[in-house]
């Protein structure tokens, strides 16, 4: 058990020390954070909804919609 604690403590220490001593890494993390916010919060939510989910809640309904799309576009 103590070995486990020691292992997890070392893992936490790795990350804490690592983040603390970052120089260029801080800039990169800011870019990553902004990017993820833009991708997942702005772009995904505002512009990229699940299109089929708006057509039906069930798998059967989605299958029916796609089947009709394929047939109607012929």
């Amino acid at each position: 058990m103590s070995q486990n604690n020691s292992f997890w403590a070392r893992v936490v220490d790795l990350y804490v020390d690592g983040f603390r001593s970052m120089t260029l890494g801080k800039t990169l993390w800011i870019i990553i954070a902004i990017k993820l916010f833009v991708f997942f919060v702005v772009i995904k939510i505002l512009f990229f909804p699940n299109f089929l989910a708006s057509k039906s809640d069930s798998d059967e309904g989605k299958a029916q919609y796609v089947r009709e799309q394929l047939i109607n576009r012929y």
Partner: peptide
């Protein structure tokens, strides 16, 4: 390597967004 990895990471996820919205017939199929 770190700079390139950090800037590039998750740029591919956009393609999956596009599958679900723009290419939904394909995604289901």
């Amino acid at each position: 390597f770190g700079v390139n990895f950090a800037i590039g990471v998750a740029t591919g996820i956009i393609l999956e967004f596009e599958f679900g919205t723009n290419w939904s017939n394909y995604s289901w199929f």
